[in-house]
Structures are given as structure tokens and as C-alpha cells.
């Protein structure tokens, strides 16, 4: 399977994504620069974490206007699987490929810790066949998912909330909401289900050496779905 990993100035998880695709999964991956317009025929596009353009203006706002995002939007419109992780999620909301916005954490602190998330909602290329609770690292300052009441109701009604912060046993409550996100939302998908954005970092826990390896499940799901069709 072929992974394109987008690199913006200030991305810092692009190498981690390439490593998971190549070293952990044994697949093919390459980086695509922010100023390129050709993704080079990938099966999956990954938008990595980091601080694109120094988080100037709003996180992801400047990156959303870079040339490569036109190619990513076209890929997404054609049904291609896109996963935005952390800053990648922020870029997807600023690009209007996903609804809502990510605001400053309620506690005003940069949070760098492990969080539990429950896989919820409809199946997506990255969550099909993935069930239960995953422990994944979070590392963000602007992770508080926000959308208006109508958008939230639509997301819930259409099963588009695909990750929710929870306790180790899957309990969803304020006590397990690290950043004040609406409805404990850690990740959502678009109407077609092919574009997924999430604040936690599956690529930082995709092998046991870096935790428990549970993040690998998302990449395996994509392999089963996209890889199986090839």
C-alpha cells in the first residue's frame, strides 16, 4: 500500500508517519512537500502533527492555503482515505474538509500525556474493525473540539464522532475530558467517512517499544480496506 505523508514547514510528526508505514507495516511511503501539487498516486494520505507555519493566525490556517492542500482536497473529494493527526486535524478543519474548529485547551496548558479514547460511530478506513478503548498519546495546546449545536447534532446523528476521550474502561465523562472538547470528541469523520481527523497520535504508539502499540490498529484497518482491494 502507498502512503503519502504531507510535510508543511513546522510539521514534526511526518517522519514518524513514514516510519510506521515503512518500518512497522512494511509498506511504501513518501513525503510530499507543502508546495507540491502532485501526491504521486497514494492509496492513503496522512496529514501529520506539528506546528505548521508556527501556528500563526490559527493552528492549521496558513497550511490550509498551501498548494498541496488543493491536491489533498481533490483526493478527498474522490473518496480517497485521508487521516489528519493533531495539527493535521486542525489543517482539515481550516480547509473545510471537516466541520468545526479546535480551540485552546480549557485548562490553558499544553497537554502531553497518554489518553484513552473509545472508538465510536460509523466505520471509516481507519477504524473499520477497530473496537473498544485505545491508549494513545496526546500532545496539543489547541485540542478543544468546538462546533455549533446543529453541527454537533448532525455529527452525532450520522455516527461521525469516531473517537471519544474516555476512562480506561470506556466511560465517557467530564473527568476523562483532557481539553474541554464538546462531547469528549477526540476525532470525527466527514460525510463520506473517508476523511478522518483526530487529536491523539496513533503513529506515536504503533509499536510496543513506544507504549503498547495500540495505535497500529488504525493503520492496519487502512491496510485491510485499501490494501485488500488491490
Amino acid at each position: 500500500m502507498r502512503f503519502a505523508v504531507v510535510s508543511f514547514p513546522g510539521s514534526n510528526c511526518d517522519d514518524d508517519c513514514v516510519r510506521v508505514a515503512t518500518e512497522v507495516l512494511g509498506e511504501t511511503a513518501w513525503k510530499v512537500r507543502h508546495d507540491e501539487r502532485d501526491l504521486r498516486r497514494p492509496d492513503v494520505v496522512l496529514l501529520p502533527g506539528g506546528f505548521s507555519y508556527g501556528d500563526y493566525l490559527r493552528c492549521g490556517a496558513i497550511a490550509s492555503l498551501s498548494p498541496v492542500m488543493e491536491a489533498v482536497a481533490a483526493f478527498a473529494r474522490a473518496g480517497g482515505p485521508v487521516l489528519g493527526i493533531c495539527n493535521g486535524f486542525q489543517v482539515l478543519t481550516e480547509s473545510h474538509l471537516l466541520p468545526g474548529a479546535l480551540l485552546r485547551n480549557a485548562g490553558l496548558k499544553f497537554i502531553c500525556e497518554d489518553a484513552h479514547v473509545r472508538v465510536d460511530g460509523r466505520p471509516t478506513p481507519f477504524t473499520a474493525g477497530v473496537q473498544g478503548v485505545l491508549r494513545l498519546p496526546i500532545a496539543h495546546n489547541e485540542g478543544r473540539y468546538h462546533a455549533d449545536a446543529d453541527t454537533l447534532a448532525r455529527l452525532e446523528g450520522e455516527g461521525r464522532v469516531v473517537f471519544r476521550y474516555c476512562g480506561p474502561d470506556g466511560t465517557v465523562s467530564d473527568a476523562f475530558n483532557p481539553n474541554g472538547a464538546s462531547a469528549n470528541i477526540a476525532g470525527i469523520c466527514n460525510e463520506g467517512g473517508n476523511v478522518v481527523g483526530m487529536m491523539p497520535h496513533p503513529e506515536r504508539n504503533a509499536e510496543p517499544l513506544l507504549g503498547n502499540g495500540q495505535g497500529r490498529a488504525l493503520f492496519d484497518a487502512a491496510l485491510r480496506l485499501v490494501g485488500g482491494a488491490r
Partner: peptide
Amino acid sequence: KLLANPVM
């Protein structure tokens, strides 16, 4: 188009 995000 850029300076404000109408979501928030």
C-alpha cells in the same frame, strides 16, 4: 476568507 474563522 482568512482572518476570521466563522466557526468560532
